[in-house]
Amino acid sequence: MIKLSQINKRYPNGHEALKDVSFDVAQGEMVFLAGHSGAGKSTLFKLITRIEKPTSGQLFVDQQNVSRMRDSKVALLRREVGVIFQDHKLLMDRTVFDNVALPLIVIGMPHDEIKKRVRAALNKVGLDGKGGQKPVTLSGGEQQRVGIARAVINRPNILLADEPTGNLDETLSDEIIDIFADFNRVGVTVLIATHDLRQVERLGKRTLHLEHGELIGDYRHASSGSQTSMKNTDEARTDG
């Protein structure tokens, strides 16, 4: 589903965000991307959604070569990839409904269908009856749920979540991550960037560990918490 081959990313200021990163994520897999701030997690997401282009290497998303993708095709790629941001990226002057409906408006879906889908998505993330409210009236956790509803409304094949639990307490974090696990259970490929190792250990999913732009580990935690395998082991990719 996602394949990176010797990806390097150097920003114009000379900062090397990713160095020779290679890995595969299979369809229906749920993978954690772990690492400290500045490890390259966000850059990786920017490359997958073509917000940035790699300096070198090949990146495939759903068999499309994103590194060589024409600008006119980028919008179509982004419709296949739902993204959740730590800062939610919501339109504060619009209602929750408007925010969640945006990806459907963009593809020109009829209004009646949009209403049905938004209602279902809000129900799924536990925000029933909050469609008419402005995001500013919601708590941080609820705002994150709006972001999730918006990311999944278009039924994407891939979900990327960049530090989705960054500002949330443990209970809320668990709830949010469980929503992602639910989507993964129905076949959505999920990639979650986090430095919250508790979540990684709790779910026992495959984990890619980035440090200073390098992939230093590709392993799997057992849900009990014990680390079972190390870098680039094929056994680690049998999840999902």
Binding site: A75, R78, L91, V106
Partner: peptide, 16 residues
């Protein structure tokens, strides 16, 4: 600006 950025992020084309 924010609305444009977010619209592009969720797959809005330049035409849209």
């Amino acid at each position: 600006r924010d609305e444009i950025e977010i619209t592009k992020l969720v797959g809005g084309t330049n035409t849209f």
